[in-house]
Nucleic acid binder design. Structure first.
Lengths: 162, 162
DNA sequence: TCATAATAGTTTCACTTGTAACTATTTGCA
DNA sequence: TGCAAATAGTTACAAGTGAAACTATTATGA
């Protein structure tokens, strides 16, 4: 593992170490977690991550249009459109009609399968989150949530002026 | 934005809110950050995320084989293979020969363009990270890194026994 | 020593994804 | 009113991705 000795300095080429690079670590963490959760509902229901998110959002906010789902989930417009299409084909989501604007299609989970799916999968996801957070103390959890929020704002600010 | 009033309870249907769901928040944060960084090097060098990671790893650990790069970056074997191929075609990475095992191809950044790319892009990525972390205090930074580590271990443990 | 298993890396194929272009409808304003 | 611009959502195309099959090479052990 130590191919070159301490050729240069006490902390060898320490200016960049991928393992300590925060963006990399966050990506790794996020992928690990998403993988863990999706393996649960993917096996059971054959849902993609986007589909699952749409279900989660519609379960919480019935009647949103596709665009509103997009906004709420910070997802891609096309991705949502496709997810909704597949969910509708499988009878999990239904499209209604908007009174004033015929372009907008309010979406709801279907009373039968859609809502059942929501009520079944959601607890699993929450259980995973709970188990995950069990590795932290209450103060750590609180702190972590706060810091994630701070970083999210900071990242958005950084990306804007670019 | 407030479509339905407080129809149900003081904390309306509070059992699941995507906005507070940690896996979702982390995914959002990671995507925002990755997007910010990649927009920097993508414009300049036309590098994909995987290619950039390979460059970062090889810059830090010259002479790794593709498999070792895969392990170090928690990346897909195929993705690395393709990234290396494109990087080699563009003269950014070179493949050497392994003394004992002709299956293994040690990889290095090319002395000219490859290392120049590394020296040019890396500071930008680090600068982004620095700006991002500037939104936290020193203690918060330390704490955040620690918590990310804890969660990463916890998530791996959770995913294993499954 | 020879056959089988294991490993490094590549290629193929089917599927997913994002960008851009498109249709349908509504809004803004001259 | 009526026409250009904006918006909701879909479609098309190109590029990216992973799983599995494949080649080449090395390790194992009867």
């Amino acid at each position: 593992m130590s191919k070159e000795g301490a050729t240069q300095s006490p902390h060898p080429a320490d200016d960049f170490m991928l393992e300590k690079f925060l963006p990399y670590r966050l990506s790794l963490l996020s992928n690990t977690i998403s993988g863990g959760i999706s393996s649960a509902y993917r096996k059971l229901y054959e849902l993609s991550v986007t589909e699952w998110r749409v279900v989660a959002i519609l379960g919480r906010y019935p009647g949103l249009t596709a665009t509103e789902v997009t906004e709420r989930g910070a997802m891609d417009k096309v991705a949502v459109s496709r997810a909704v299409k597949r969910l509708e084909e499988r009878g999990l989501v239904e499209r209604g009609e908007h009174d004033a604007d015929r372009r907008r299609l309010p979406l709801v989970l279907s009373p039968g399968d859609g809502q059942r799916l929501f009520r079944d999968v959601m607890p699993r996801a929450l259980a995973y989150e709970r188990q995950l957070l069990a590795s932290l103390s209450a103060e750590e959890r609180e702190m972590f949530g706060r810091l994630v929020g701070k970083l999210q704002s900071a990242a958005q600010r950084l990306n804007e002026k670019d």
